[in-house]
């Protein structure tokens, strides 16, 4: 653990990501304090105000303050990320560990099920799920969670297969350690580094996916301050008010970038085996 932290600190790009991430967390936590205005308040006398002293990042077509909406949007992005990645991690580990540990027919069935989910491109799958469930924030979380479950399952399954035959696992089995403690004590800990890396990178995917769904009008509810929704609102005003589209996009990019940088650095620091691997 100490070595990991040292290796991470030596990673310049990783530290840049960590600082960005800290800023993001800060703005999400203190959004109500930092925001100059109510993100939902429409100022009919200040429609499409250009960035300036009145509104630092301008206002949108309904006179809502862009900066305040971006700050509040970070809460939504993190919330969706947390719940959907949490779902994918939990469901993925359950499926992957079961498949890897049980092997045989169970493994075949679960692996084919994951292949099925994998064979629909992620945006398309999320769209289809949203079409069935309906446009709602909780449904976005569920849809993104389902879409990224197979990745976690594959990682977990691979790690289980790697350590399942390890001598210390056999030793534990020979002592009569039950299946569940065997997995929790001996097998899962070996999978933790790979899962941490995958979790961090999945946050990046989740933030991207939520904003894409909202941009397409199939994500969060219409008035919610979401970065993707802001870009959707802004695309009709591109020639008059570039700021509605430019600043939320920057927020998405910086957020995704910070998770990617931290994920890359963690991959290098935690496990040399994973270096330069999957995208």
């Amino acid at each position: 653990m100490k070595n990991t932290w040292q290796a991470f600190r030596m990673h310049r790009m990783g530290m840049v990501g960590a600082v960005l991430l800290a800023l993001l967390l800060g703005s999400a936590l203190f959004a109500p304090l930092l925001s100059p205005r109510d993100p939902l308040a429409m100022q009919t006398d200040a429609l499409l105000t250009a960035p300036g002293s009145d509104a630092l990042l301008g206002t949108d077509a309904l006179g809502r303050d862009v900066l305040s909406r971006i700050l509040h949007g970070s809460r939504l992005a993190l919330h969706v990320g947390l719940v959907s990645v949490g779902f994918a991690l939990t469901a993925g580990c359950l499926l992957g560990v079961t498949a890897g540990y049980a092997g045989g027919k169970t493994d075949y069935v679960i692996s084919r099920f994951l292949d099925i989910l994998f064979s629909v491109p992620d945006v398309m799958l999320a769209l289809a799920i949203m079409a069935v469930l309906g446009q709602k924030t909780t449904n976005v979380m569920l849809a993104i969670g389902i879409v990224y479950t197979p990745i976690f399952a594959r990682v977990a399954r691979g790690e289980v297969l790697r350590v399942k035959r390890a001598l210390f696992v056999e030793a534990a089995r020979s002592m009569g350690v039950r299946t569940l403690p065997l997995i929790v004590r001996h097998i899962l800990p070996a999978a933790v580094p790979a899962l941490i890396v995958q979790t961090t990178l999945s946050f990046a995917f989740a933030v991207l996916a939520e904003s894409a769904l909202s941009f397409l009008g199939l994500g969060v509810e219409p008035d919610t301050p979401s970065w993707g929704m802001m870009l959707r609102d802004g695309k009709d005003w591109l020639d008059e008010a570039w700021w509605i589209s430019v600043f939320p996009g920057m927020a998405i990019t910086l957020t995704v970038l910070s998770f990617n940088l931290v994920g890359d650095a963690l991959r290098d620091a935690l496990d040399p085996r994973l270096r330069g691997g999957a995208a």
Binding site: F215, D239, L257, A279
Partner: peptide
């Protein structure tokens, strides 16, 4: 490499419109 992974494609599209069509 890292920015390509981080910039959402629909925002990149918007920026390209801002820069090269408008």
């Amino acid at each position: 490499g890292i920015s390509g992974l981080s910039i959402p494609n629909f925002w990149l599209g918007t920026l390209l419109i801002l820069g090269f069509s408008l």
